[in-house]
Design a protein around this nucleic acid. Structure first.
Lengths: 221, 221
DNA sequence: CTTCGTAGTTTGTGATCACAAAATTTTCAA
DNA sequence: TTGAAAATTTTGTGATCACAAACTACGAAG
């Protein structure tokens, strides 16, 4: 009576998890080439599971397979950036509102924890940790929505702007960052859907606005 | 001076195109198993490119890789369906509005052609042709937006509901179908963004509403 | 010093193989 | 006839190989 069919494999999932968090924390630089054998060697696996993972992430537009077959982290462009902003503003407040009824005390205190840790990594200048925790904070909310559609779409968006986000942080630092997490947490406590939507939207607008102002000045139009 | 680097491969792209249109025209039935070697044999290629394509489509949630590794077309559920509807209503009117400025006389007449062919296939009961043309009509508009973000997200949504759409049509026929294509074409002629958004939204609501009423009655909740 | 061609290396692609897990069919006893 | 156990087939996974295209480095000619 083993009603727990363990995944038949673990290698591909492990590789995928590794590459995803590397992307989300900005360890992959936009424009940088990603080679099959190189990644495989780094992760200590054969090229085979890496091939599948690369196809997966390319399908999510998190990686780009050029016409000549070379794989690279996509570069950010101004139209791409503004479209990501638009899509985030469409999807994420909706996701947050869907999640609100399922966010109880447990999740609220978890959000508080994450936000505290986030402030700490901001103070210590730990960019990678900050990006990881910021993603964790947002998706701690979104995941509660138990969404099978909007959540994957949003995850795809994050994979697309995260590498660029990191390059900007690397240039201007993270000290000037402001977020609306406190307001979001308060909205969760108050069960105020409108306030939660507003906090999420403001967080997106502010964060992406900073990225746009500080980052896109010297990028091809 | 060969400024036209032909894709290094054609096999994977060809396989992907084949599977995508098969999905979009409903030739794959929800719940039906998709086997690697089976698909490869059907398409006359080796299992290798099929593996990559399956990973790609699984990443877009167009195919489902179960815990035991088996691949199948996802089954529709009520929450999944209502979320797809919500996501379509968020993304597609936006996409249409973005496209409007770039829809000239050429595109308008192409839309008219597609809609006429669509009516014809409706009259002859050609469900597969209808689904192909309906997809072509919508994406003739959306593609004009030259969107790099919203367009792939929307394509993913279509891949997810198309197979289910087909099973409902197979049960209740396509004769009772009504669409808002004429209104959309008129809005394009009039350069009326609000009317175009409205037509697209109505087309989605009506079409999906029919799918929901006629299809989800006997499906697990 | 620049430019162009050539040799060597790296890279993605498609194919094939071995293996284990899962599903399917067959067999045989109750 | 029925039901469970055993044998067979099917299936996904990871590894390796051969090959052609692309990139890199280097050197010779101008």
């Amino acid at each position: 009576m083993s009603a727990d069919p363990r995944p038949r494999t673990s290698t591909r999932l492990q590789v995928e998890q590794a590459v995803r968090t590397a992307l989300l924390t900005g360890r992959f630089i936009p424009g940088k080439a990603v080679t099959l054998r190189g990644l495989a060697k780094d992760l200590g696996v054969s090229p085979m599971p890496v091939r599948e993972v690369i196809q997966r992430l390319a399908a999510e537009n998190a990686l780009e397979i050029r016409l000549n077959g070379r794989v690279q982290v996509p570069e950010m462009t101004a139209p791409r950036f503004s479209e990501i902003l638009k899509a985030r503003l469409l999807l994420e407040p909706e996701l947050a509102e869907m999640a609100l009824p399922k966010l109880g005390k447990t999740e609220a205190s978890r959000l508080k924890e994450l936000d505290d840790a986030l402030d700490a990594s901001l103070g210590s200048g730990d960019t990678e940790g900050y990006m990881f925790l910021n993603h964790a904070f947002h998706f701690e909310i979104y995941k509660a929505a138990r969404s099978q559609i909007l959540l994957p779409l949003t995850e795809s968006l994050w994979l697309q702007f995260a590498p660029y986000m990191r390059t900007v942080y690397g240039r201007v630092g993270t000290s000037s960052l402001v977020d609306w997490h406190k307001e979001a947490i308060k909205a969760v406590h108050d069960r105020d859907a409108g306030a939660l939507r507003g906090a999420i939207a403001a967080d997106i607008t502010e964060g992406m606005g900073m990225l746009g102002r500080r980052g896109l000045e010297a990028i091809n139009p």
